[in-house]
Computed example of a mutant assay.
Amino acid sequence: MIKLDHLNCLVTGGAGFIGSHLVDQLLARGCMVRVLDNLSNGKLANLSSHFADPNFEFNQGSITDPCDVDQAMQDIQVVFHLACLGVRHSIAHPYENQRVNAEGTLLLLAAASRAKVSRFIHCSSSEVYGSAQYVPMAETHPTQPCTVYGASKLAGEAYARAYYLTYGLPTVIIRPFNTYGPRSHHEGDAGEMIPKSIVRALNGKEVLVFGGGLQTRDFTFVEDTAAGLVAAAECEAMTGLTLNIGCNFEISVKELAEKLVAMVGNHAATVRFTSARPGDVSRLHADPSAFMALCGWRPTTTFEAGLEKTIACFRAHPLGLAGLLQSEAGRNW
């Protein structure tokens, strides 16, 4: 077992949703944490509690810039690679999406190999699978991504495997299924259903369901996902492997929308069905048993408890409910 305590860690995309929670956990372990983020989706506010911490360093820069990457990689022992552009972004900007998610990953792997880092955790996505052909979906499930995002994440995986097999870089590829929780994106093309729906429901607006609502997803609370990434870095038996993180359950988008409206408790909020999103996968349901068997990780937050925490976070947001709604466009592709 590898102990992360007091090691020098680089988190790309560390100002983002999952990345900032990972930074929280690494700093709590006594790690020196350097973040590389261009703030295209991430927010400095997600990291503001760490600005005075001598073990924390923020580098504003891009994973597609060799100079930024080389500077960020100096004296680093463990890399957590989370920086990416998302699913909806890839609909309108496919080339930029693949450049960041695939080419940026390759650039980072090359720099990590030169720096002889002891661990490289590549955060991929369940989107590499496309829609489930059977459930639950183990790592052997066919990979047939529906979007350029999914394809670019799959390419990044292939590069990570190649660097392990050809150059001996100790990589681990993690495929998180859908993650939710505080700091999740409700705005722009990074916005996802749970935060978008919470913002709309809190404001008494219609919660939008794209398509028939029968699509299913497997959700993990963000602190559990971050803990899984830490566990992957510490588990030597995972070197060279590709593994799922998920909760082995599925809920339909329709049921989720109705649940959120009920939990928010604003009687003016309703559910409205609208046209389907392009590239939307119809079913995701994780089999995380291989990951659990290797490191003992288990999700500790129930879905309902996680939703309550997420709703409370948005209810208390410094922008206020009306301010949050201003940046929630509904259709975000």
Rank of each mutant, 00 (worst) to 15 (best):
T171L: 09
A276L: 00
E157I: 02
L243H: 09
G240C: 02
T225Q: 15
G168E: 05
T166F: 05
A257L: 10
R200W: 13
L202K: 11
T179I: 10
K259E: 11
A190L: 11
T220V: 10
R277H: 02
N244R: 13
G156M: 08
F210A: 02
I198K: 13
P182G: 04
R183A: 07
A257H: 06
P195E: 05
E223H: 12
M193E: 09
G213Q: 09
L208I: 14
Q215M: 03
V222C: 02
E236W: 11
A232I: 03
Y167D: 09
F177Y: 14
L214H: 07
S184G: 07
R217E: 00
E234P: 00
V207T: 10
E236H: 13
L169V: 09
A262Q: 15
L165T: 13
Y159Q: 04
L165G: 10
H185Y: 10
I198A: 03
D280G: 06
F177K: 12
V264E: 08
A201Q: 13
N203S: 15
L202Q: 04
E250A: 11
T171I: 10
A269D: 08
R200K: 11
G240K: 05
A158E: 03
A237D: 12
G246R: 05
E258T: 07
A231S: 13
A232G: 06
T220Y: 02
T270E: 08
G156Q: 06
E250Q: 12
V271E: 09
V271S: 03
T239M: 06
L243V: 05
V209Y: 01
K205Y: 13
I245Q: 06
V253N: 07
S184M: 05
L208M: 12
L202M: 10
F219G: 00
I174P: 00
